[in-house]
Design a protein around this nucleic acid. Structure first.
Length: 430
RNA sequence: GUCCCCAUCGUCUAGCCUGGUCUAGGACAAGAGCUUUUCAAGCUCUCGACACCGGUUCAAAUCCGGUUGGGGACACCA
């Protein structure tokens, strides 16, 4: 049974890099019918925070990476202690006293060559000569990262350690510990790093946006996962959009490439639009309702859900992020719309009183008020006036929506309704 | 400084393992056009890469060596 783990430290939010590591672990488990274990590396009590833990757990669930088991290192200190004592007893570690602090347990490093057979990179050789003796238990009694990591991976029977490239130099240190403790070695796979656009590691300043923020901004988890999957792996066959369920069927560590990838969010935007277009509008409504309520655009108990879904449908294909809807469709919810000054300048300098009046009358005369009849009435009217449709379409759009961009005019009028269309047009009749 | 990793369009990548089918394919971005009711989408087209040097070979993006460049690690952080 394949067992993999993702081991974040709650000293920061989950960001793109961590999410991608989690993804590759999770998908490998799925691909091989294995288990995905989540381990919280919260040994540093001073830096670990509950809010980060919550954010990490929320984000992993949001992305769809459900775990089979969950461990907290802070609850396992006695286990680390036990193994440290074993090493002490066997003479593989020694105690070191520091003034003002307690005793630390230090691992004795024996000079030798250490070979790592990495699933992605092949064989890598290190010389332990360059590695200093390693602290196992700090003088405050807490374990160090490398020690706790090895004990936990072995104890929880992790078969494949899949992690970022930045851990590659920890690997020889950990292998020495596995051997000293008499544990079986897992397989190692070191993922290429994700670099910021400026080069270098992802940091708060450079692209390390919290995953939960992508949720807040209106990205779809499927889109983010698909984008992440393409960073270092390819389904082949010139495929870009690939559903996770399909990807799990063809995923293999062997196909992960060695090169670090630069984070370029343009492609994520494109990907998000791809998923937004085909997403069930009912689901998008669920996502949008809280934000719309908060904006005061709708009221929770007086919600016309069917209407909202209809509106989502006419915007769906043009959204980059779901939240674009809130700005672009505001005129459907606001009593008083704001007219973009540039749009007014461009389309409403002329007096359209006669045309607007005429259009109102035509609409009121309609027996059946739907997208097709509105359009027919409008087209007949401009024909009679002897003008091009767009001469009138743009000014009407600006008056009704306040914007120069948006959905087709006739469906927009249909959903705005006769009454509101009339009111907004009348404001511009002198 | 020491150790380690990496190297195909601006970006993500296919191809590399198993040299010839590669005058290197796709996607994003950019530019042009079509459509049109604006924007978005869609469609068509354009721009654009095997880091460099040497070796092996009839033949190298593909194998080998070096150079250069980029990145990572060297904590009683994780």
């Amino acid at each position: 049974m394949i067992r993999v783990r993702f081991a974040p430290s709650p000293t920061g939010n989950l960001h793109i890099g961590g999410a991608r590591t989690a993804l590759f672990n999770w998908i490998y488990a799925k691909a091989k019918g294995g288990e995905f274990i989540l381990r919280i590396e919260d040994t540093d009590a001073a830096r670990s925070q509950k809010e980060y833990l919550d954010e990490i757990l929320f984000s992993l669930k949001w992305l769809g990476f459900e775990w089979d088991e969950l461990y907290y290192q802070s609850q396992r200190f006695d286990i680390y202690r036990k193994y440290a004592e074993q090493l002490l007893k066997e003479g593989k570690a020694y105690l070191e006293k520091t003034e003002g602090r307690g005793e630390a347990v230090i691992f004795k490093v024996t000079p030798r060559k250490i070979k790592v057979n990495d699933l992605i990179r092949g064989e890598i050789e290190f010389d332990a000569e360059a590695i200093k003796d390693q602290v196992l238990i700090k003088s405050d009694g807490t374990p160090t990262y490398n020690f706790a990591c090895v004990v936990d991976d072995a104890q929880t029977q992790i078969t494949h350690v899949i992690r970022g490239d930045d851990h590659i130099s920890n690997t020889p240190k950990q292998i020495m510990l596995y051997e000293a403790l008499g544990f079986n070695l897992p397989c190692f796979a070191h993922l290429p790093l994700i670099l910021s656009k400026e080069g270098g590691r992802l940091s708060k300043r450079k692209g390390a946006t919290a995953i939960s923020d992508y949720h807040t901004m209106g990205y779809l988890p499927q889109a983010l996962v698909n984008y992440l999957l393409l960073l270092g792996w390819s389904p082949g066959g010139n495929r870009e959009v690939i559903e996770i369920n399909e990807a799990t069927k063809i995923f293999d560590i062997k196909n992960i490439n060695k090169t670090a990838a630069v984070l370029d969010l343009d492609k994520l935007d494109w990907m998000n639009n791809q998923y937004l277009k085909k997403e069930d509008p009912e689901k998008l409504a669920d996502e949008l309702i809280p934000a719309l309520v908060e904006k005061g655009y709708i009221e929770k108990d007086k919600l016309d859900r069917g209407y909202l879904v209809s509106l989502i449908k006419i915007f769906q294909g043009r959204l980059t992020v779901l939240n674009d809807f809130i700005d672009w469709a505001d005129f459907f919810f606001l009593k008083e719309i704001k007219i973009d000054p540039a749009a007014e300048e461009k389309f409403l300098k002329r007096d359209f009183s006669r045309e607007f009046r005429m259009f109102i009358n035509r609409m009121e005369a309609l027996d059946k008020f739907d997208v097709a009849t509105i359009e027919t009435a409008f087209r007949e009217m401009v024909k009679e006036l002897g003008i091009e449709a767009k001469v009138l379409i743009h000014p009407i759009r600006v008056v009704l929506t306040g914007k120069t961009i948006g959905p087709g005019l006739f469906e927009l009028i249909y959903y705005l309704g006769r009454q509101r269309t009339k009111e907004r047009l009348e404001k511009w009749i002198k």
